[in-house]
């Protein structure tokens, strides 16, 4: 991959950029994590960001989400300056390895949470009634053993519409039979599905994914990647994915970048990403070619030295995008 390619992609301004970052810098004490970082991402795309541990990937996401404030720089989402904007006004949702479901709410109410926060302008009494009602429903369900209670009986139109949306999401997530279970009764994959559903239901401007499937087993991880791809493309979600997993980056991402020394280096397309030795694609191909060639046993040790785990500075001079 050439230097020109990388810098060209970085400089290209886009009129319809959903995320626009200029000169972003963040440090902790003497340690500089991000240094004059520039970035643009168009609406409906997923940018997969790779980088070694400690390169500042998560910091970038936390700054966008509003969990931390940058030292200098400007961030915009959908043309809106994020400076000093509280997290609830940003339209940016972050998902990490942990699903972070609300333990006092069942699956249905967890999914409905964001919608309620956006639509509900009623007072504490309504919330209290709903909270009590939910406990009552759960208890009744426990007594009757009924898995799919009637969700719509005697509701006002706004509430009815909300429930329809949540139910559609439950169906899409294949979680309908679990609607009234407590989050603690779900498996790791199911919990992660609820977290995704909850975030997608409010149609956030940007979804930030911080290695969201890293804690799942290989099979569940693949299912989740597929599910996420399907749902996010249906909703045309703009997302920023941070991962160590090459396969995940390739399945979910349609834009690719690498964080190095506090700066983001963009690849212009999938082919350029695959061609960079740093991405590990070539290494992976070589491994499988080697492992599957007749009469040759795969040596697992070969993989542990793969470039994806290597310090980028040791990848060789030809591998370096500047």
């Amino acid at each position: 991959m050439s230097t020109e390619q990388t810098t060209h992609a970085q400089a290209a301004p886009s009129a319809e950029a959903m995320i626009r970052i200029r000169g972003l810098a963040k440090g902790y004490g003497a340690e500089r994590v991000l240094e004059a970082l520039d970035m643009e991402l168009d609406a409906g795309h997923c940018l997969a960001v790779l980088g070694p541990s400690g390169s500042g990937k998560t910091t970038l996401l936390r700054l966008l989400a509003g969990e931390e404030e940058p030292d200098t720089g400007r961030m915009e989402v959908d043309g809106m300056d994020l400076t000093g904007l509280s997290p609830e006004r940003r339209g940016v949702v972050m998902l990490g390895q942990e699903a972070l479901l609300f333990p006092h709410l069942d699956v249905f109410e967890n999914l409905a949470f964001g919608l309620r926060m956006q639509s509900d302008h009623r007072g504490p009494w309504t919330l209290l009634k709903r909270w009590a009602g939910q406990y009552w429903r759960q208890t009744r369900q426990r007594w009757s053993g009924n898995k799919t209670p009637d969700l719509y009986r005697g509701l006002d139109p706004e509430e009815s519409a909300l429930r329809h949306r949540v139910q559609r999401m439950l169906e899409a997530l294949d979680l309908l039979p679990h609607a009234h279970k407590s989050p603690s009764a779900l498996s790791g994959g199911q919990r992660q599905r609820v977290a995704f559903g909850r975030a997608l239901l409010i149609r956030p401007k940007v979804l930030l994914l911080d290695e969201p499937f890293a804690s799942l087993d290989a099979q569940t991880r693949r299912e989740m990647q597929e599910l996420y791809r399907k749902l996010s493309s249906a909703e045309a979600t703009t997302s920023l994915l941070v991962t160590h997993d090459l396969r995940e980056a390739l399945v979910l991402g349609d834009r690719f970048a690498r964080l190095r020394e506090g700066r983001l280096l963009h690849y212009p397309d999938r082919a350029a990403f695959a061609a960079d030795p740093y991405s590990g694609v070539a290494e992976e191909q070589a491994f499988w070619r080697d492992a599957l060639s007749p009469g040759k046993a795969a040596n697992p040790a070969h993989r542990t030295n793969g470039p994806a785990h290597q310090d980028p500075d040791q990848s060789g001079p030809g591998a370096e995008p500047s």
Binding site: R22, G23, P70, T72, G73, T83
Partner: peptide, 8 residues
């Protein structure tokens, strides 16, 4: 570029 470092 706007300076957004703020005093706590």
């Amino acid at each position: 570029m706007m300076q957004i470092r703020r005093m706590r």
